[in-house]
Simulated scan of single mutants.
Amino acid sequence: MKKKLVLALALALPTLAGGSGFATDRTFDVAARLTQGPGNVTVTSGGRIIISQHQFYEPKASVVELRADGITSPFPNLEANDREHPRSLSLDSVLGLRSDNGVVWLLDNGMRSGVTPKLVAWDTTTNQLSRVIYLPPPIAPKDAFVNDFTIDGRHKKIFIADPAGGANAALIVVDIATGAARRVLEGHRSVVPENVDLAIDGRPIQVKGANGQLVTPHIGVNPITEDLENEWVYFGPMHGLSLYRVKAEDLTNESIDAPTLASRVERYSAKPICDGITIDKDNNIYLGNLAENAIGVIKSDRSYQQLAKSDQLSWVDSFSFGPDGRLYAVVNQLHRSAALNGGENVAKAPYFLVEVRALAAGLAGR
């Protein structure tokens, strides 16, 4: 499975344990030390911390819950289901996670086993499978790598970032009620990667291709979030120095043709190369500055501010607010994984869940 996944990445990307303590600069806390490399994180309105385990590290469980004692356990807990109301669920490669009104949405890209990508909704109140929405071609093409997403409760939509093979990167709009999906903005400048390379600690990110040659990946749209009023969707290519936005109303309007929708996308601000992002109630956008081992924020005046910098912040991937206004992020050393380090895995535990000093509170689960 590992060989198949790395090969898929090589073809796509070029085109395109518990414990806590204060960090030395006291701008973030290490909330938990993890023995398995995390992918994304979401925190429910009840304070449950759900973490996907990154497929690059071939975890046994695709998703886990971080318990209060610092131990992780597989999520969802299928054994706790009522035997009179069985619900089958198979998860392959979950990265994207978001929580909304007691429902945890899991985005399974299916890349480890080559299965159809899908959105899975798990109701944490009843501990049962709520629904599954499949994303077959051409919604998610063969080179799709559906990853981050955001939930729009006002328009009842989910917006997914798909970097795909780079040139065909796009956003996917999913109707929560019907499961119908559309692929939009494919190939637009706001989603395709720019010709910028990523190096961390003086070492370039490299993928081993099918022919054994090392190539430098350029990854398309990945970071995506939406303001708390469900007015603007913010997104951009991972390998890109610009953040863009478009109105959610335009993304959800099926009567708008592709050229018109493209014309309504605006460049919002500069940004560093980053992975996941989130936003607070004052429209400050938080991100990991990968090249600098740092966490930064694009403030509401569109200026950039560095919040924290530390060797501990080695590939800050995903963010989520909790119900108490706390902002969490996962740190996974992804550039040291075999997939992004020329086939050699040099990542070592511990990996981290960190708590960031946010400028303002946000929405739990986002």
Rank of each mutant, 00 (worst) to 15 (best):
V265F: 06
H188L: 11
E292W: 09
N211P: 00
P237A: 10
R264E: 06
N211M: 13
S190C: 04
E79A: 15
E229R: 15
A32Q: 05
E186N: 02
G362K: 03
P141T: 14
V354T: 10
V146S: 02
G342D: 09
D148I: 03
D148M: 03
W122F: 15
Q312I: 13
G212D: 04
P74I: 14
E292D: 15
V30L: 13
P59T: 08
F319E: 02
L353C: 11
H155L: 12
S303R: 07
Q55L: 10
V191T: 06
T44A: 06
V146T: 11
I160M: 07
A181E: 00
V43Y: 07
D257M: 01
C274N: 14
M111F: 08
A364K: 10
E254R: 07
A144P: 09
A258E: 15
A180H: 04
T126M: 05
T15M: 13
Q53T: 13
E292T: 05
E249I: 04
R264C: 07
G220V: 02
P86G: 01
N195G: 06
N345S: 03
G70C: 05
G96L: 07
G342H: 10
I158G: 01
E65P: 15
S20V: 05
A248E: 08
E226W: 02
A31T: 11
L307Q: 06
L228E: 07
V354D: 02
A360G: 10
R264T: 02
K348W: 06
R48T: 08
V330F: 07
L7G: 03
A199V: 11
A270Y: 09
K118D: 06
A339E: 14
R245S: 11
L34M: 15
L66T: 13
Q36S: 11
G96K: 12
R264A: 02
T42R: 10
G325L: 01
S242H: 14
P272V: 09
S73Y: 04
V146Y: 03
A140P: 00
G240V: 09
I279Y: 10
A80H: 04
Q312F: 15
A349F: 10
I172M: 03
T126F: 07
I151L: 04
V331I: 13
Q55Y: 15
D69Q: 04
T125C: 01
L287T: 02
I219C: 05
I295Y: 04
H218C: 07
Q36V: 10
G37H: 07
